[in-house]
Design a protein around this nucleic acid. Sequence first.
DNA 1: TGCCAGGCCGGGT
DNA 2: ACCCGGCATGGC
Length: 221
Amino acid sequence: MIPAARSRHPFDPAALHRILLNHYGPSGWWPGESPFEVMVGAVLTQNTAWTNVEKAIANLKAASLLDVVAIHATPSDRLAAHLRPSGYYNIKARRLKNLADMIMGSFDGSLERLFALDARDLRGILLEVNGIGKETADSICCYAAGKLVFVVDAYTRRILSRHGIINGDAGYDDVQQLFEGSLGPDLGAYKDLHAHLVYIGKDYCRSRNPMCGECPLKGSV
DNA sequence: TGCCAGGCCGGGT
DNA sequence: ACCCGGCATGGC
């Protein structure tokens, strides 16, 4: 079921994307030099500021630990030491190892083989990994594997909710369908729109102020 | 200074 | 099916 909308007009994600693109320009997401770096970033950024994630990824690079085999082979406490700046370092070390273990065990360590799965199967496999939930799985599907999977996060919900497009208690998959059902098969739009929503979400309606003065969406959504 | 950041899990009700 | 505490660092 699509969540009930209080808005008079049907939600048009492509129009929303055009507004944001016009206002801010291309987002340039996801930062990362390789698909695996994107995957690692997706785990490390869970409830964590990206600036902290960057430090941890730099540590992994400096220690030559930014690949599947190395993470699979490294004890989690040693891995954790490099992850300190990103917070939750013990649990994140475990999560990165769970991910690497899955890729080693089921796909011979090959991201090509993993990404050869179709979007639904890839999402399912990722969700079976302890420490990977829907947002992390979908971020990997979209930004690392290049699948047509739209990423929903807390900001996406908050923004749509404030505009009366969804109810506050709408489920993840419902919100996702709202985008995937309307956006065309345009991977660039999937990537860029989510990125913009996160980007504006930070200072968008942070307080109980229902509408920020400079909101580019005002009157448009 | 306290609050927040691109969540997720496990245990309890 | 929800609800909650825990996980942890760095920036404003």
